[in-house]
Simulated scan of single mutants.
Amino acid sequence: MTTTTPRVAIVTGATGGIGRAVAERLAADGMAVVVHYAGNEARAKEVVDTLTAAGGTGTAIRGDVADEAEMSALFEQTGQLYGGVDVVVNTAGIMLLGPVAEYDLGDFDRMHRTNVRGTFVVSQLAARTLRPGGALVNFSTSVTRLQQPGYAAYAATKGAVEAMTLILARELRGRDVTVNAVAPGPTATPLFLEGKPQQVIDQIAGLAPMERLGTPADIAEAVAFLAGPGRWINGQVLFANGGIA
């Protein structure tokens, strides 16, 4: 009788709405999932409990995505626990909005540190670590195509993510590792819904031809495809937005 070793996934920002849905979906696909979190240990443990209650395998590990020492330790601990890394999904990110003319440069630097440097640090470790057949999935946003006022600084960080993702895919020639980005449109996460009147939510939902917001499960479905069967998709940005852009 032969046994198969589960594939191993690291999901950064796995306590957020999309990150949690990704962690749950990859665990349902049979992967052992490292639930990365930055500060909310209780929420990370709750995610792990959800994974294990559904018959999956998960471990919560803390780290600052922009700190190379902390993330190196996370990758090393993952290897010690599970023997290696097959999938890395970078959902960790922050969004601070405002018009260019009045934008606070401190907010810009803070967002750049998490969204750009953090993605670069984790991508670098993934490039060094992922086993053959592996996949790296970074996160962009459909806002890069929508040109919405107030989103310039955020879109700029995600444009940088797209650039590094597409180039890294070519740098990993011969490794049998895919590198792609998912670019969600408006998605019904607690962060997105908070503070928005229902009228505004309905208006945004109506922009998509499918006349609804995306759900975290919709985005997780796209990630699961890129992390699993989508082996011929490489060096691409997959827009998961229901046709909004």
Rank of each mutant, 00 (worst) to 15 (best):
F139I: 04
V48C: 10
A227C: 13
E24L: 15
Y154R: 04
V11L: 00
P197W: 12
Y151G: 13
L105M: 15
R20P: 04
G16F: 00
D29S: 14
E46P: 01
V22L: 02
A163H: 05
S72K: 14
A220F: 09
G133T: 10
Q203T: 13
R20T: 11
A181P: 01
R25L: 07
Q199G: 04
A155V: 02
V200F: 12
A53G: 13
N115A: 06
I61V: 09
A163C: 04
E221N: 14
G230E: 13
L26W: 05
N180C: 10
E162W: 04
A217L: 06
V121Q: 00
E68P: 05
T2M: 05
V11C: 02
D67F: 02
E171D: 14
N180E: 10
P184S: 07
R62T: 08
E70D: 10
A245P: 06
R62M: 11
S72I: 10
F120M: 14
I204D: 02
D86E: 01
A135N: 06
L168D: 15
V182F: 08
T78V: 12
S72W: 09
V237D: 01
A135I: 09
T12C: 03
I201K: 00
N90W: 06
P216G: 03
K45V: 07
V179K: 00
E41R: 15
T157W: 01
A188H: 04
P132V: 07
L146M: 14
F239D: 12
A240P: 02
A21E: 13
I18M: 07
Q77K: 13
V89K: 00
Q77L: 12
G56M: 05
D109R: 11
E68I: 10
M164A: 04
A205V: 09
L81R: 15
T4K: 14
Q198A: 11
G17K: 01
R7M: 05
A183H: 07
P229C: 11
E171V: 09
L207F: 08
A220W: 03
A69E: 15
A163D: 04
G228C: 05
V137M: 05
D67T: 07
G98S: 08
V182Q: 02
V8N: 01
V8K: 05
P190K: 11
G134L: 08
A240V: 15
Y151Q: 15
A92K: 01
A222R: 02
I10W: 00
D86V: 01
F139S: 03
N115M: 07
Q148P: 00
P186A: 12
G174K: 13
A44T: 05
F139M: 11
Q80H: 06
I167C: 07
Q198Y: 08
T91L: 13
N115E: 07
N241T: 08
V143S: 08
D176E: 13
T52G: 05
Y154M: 04
R145Q: 12
L166W: 06
V47G: 00
R7A: 03
N180I: 02
V47T: 15
G84P: 00
V48H: 06
L226E: 11
P197K: 15
